[in-house]
């Protein structure tokens, strides 16, 4: 292959020095694609082949599950089960973040408050969150708000404690700078305390997200007649294996989407932080 042969004439043609470099980029992209999707694809194929040979009825093949997925979740069930679940999850997450960050900031700013509440908070964080479901059922009955309360009561702790820690650890020189320029209280909160603790807050939120998802599922398995968690448990009890697997798949998708969404938000909120870390590491 001669250089430039068949190369389109573009203003950038001069930058494409040789065909081999162009080909190199193509290979790199192909390799990246292969690395990213090779193993999952392989796993699916192996699973598919294995399931056709195996007599184990608990592990249907990926195609069967795919079919069941479409049949089960596309349509009414999406409105009746998936959306309400996601709505409660979203509400719970938002409430956890608002409550956790607000309370964490206040507690983090006052040392006496921190010392007053520290043992209590340590204890509450240590309670396995699902244990709160029976308590919430007792106090609030089996209602939608009970489920949201359960989600909040579990997911709020990592956010709260990380916020407290972040606020407490605000750099002393930064605080002194704010002092010397007589920055007002609100400005201090908005331009110093919250951004300074945002890396810790985001760590807490990430932990809170996974707790929230777990609590959404369990609270529905426990006390519900609708929702994702309820559906999956229902399928299992009625030996609808492929449908159950499709539910697990859907929950996995929700988990992955939540992680991806969080990653996007985090990258935006903490752009300065990651940029700074990259610079100091170099």
């Amino acid at each position: 292959m001669t250089p430039y042969a068949g190369e389109p004439v573009t203003p950038y043609a001069r930058e494409v020095v040789s065909g081999s470099r162009f080909r190199g980029a193509g290979i790199r992209i192909a390799a990246g694609f292969l690395f990213a999707f090779g193993l999952p694809f392989l796993a699916l194929v192996v699973w598919g082949v294995w399931s056709t040979r195996s007599t184990n009825r608990f592990f249907p093949g990926p195609l069967t599950i795919g079919e069941a997925f479409v049949d089960t979740w596309v349509g009414r069930a999406f409105l009746d089960d998936v959306l309400p679940s996601l709505y409660r999850l979203g509400l719970g997450i938002v409430a956890s973040i608002v409550v956790g960050v607000a309370a964490g900031t206040v507690i983090g700013l006052f040392r006496w408050l921190r010392e007053l509440l520290e043992p209590l908070l340590e204890f509450f964080r240590a309670i396995p969150p699902p244990v709160l479901i029976p308590v919430a059922m007792l106090l609030l009955g089996i209602t939608d708000s009970m489920k949201v309360v359960v989600i909040v009561s579990g997911a709020v702790w990592p956010i709260l404690l990380n916020t407290i820690e972040g606020v407490r650890a605000t750099d002393s020189v930064m605080t002194e700078t704010a002092d010397s320029f007589q920055i007002t209280w609100w400005e201090r909160l908005w331009f110093l305390v919250l951004p300074a603790s945002s890396p810790r807050i985001m760590t807490g939120v990430r932990q809170g997200l996974s707790v929230a998802l777990i609590l959404m599922v369990i609270s529905e398995m426990f006390a519900s007649s609708s929702g994702l968690g309820y559906r999956i448990a229902y399928f299992q009890r009625n030996y609808l294996i492929a449908e159950m697997w499709s539910g697990i798949l859907l929950l996995g998708l929700v988990g992955v989407l939540l992680a991806v969404a969080f990653g996007l938000v985090e990258r935006r909120v903490l752009r300065w932080y990651h940029g700074m870390r990259e610079v100091t590491r170099a």
């Binding site: 690395f35 796993a43 448990a233």
Partner: peptide
């Protein structure tokens, strides 16, 4: 590199989603 996608997909799956499967098994 090869396992990255797999791990990133499997990790966020809430473990409690597997409860029905575990019970069946």
């Amino acid at each position: 590199r090869a396992t990255h996608t797999m791990v990133e997909f499997l990790r966020p799956i809430p473990s409690v989603a597997l409860i029905p499967l575990a019970v069946l098994m």
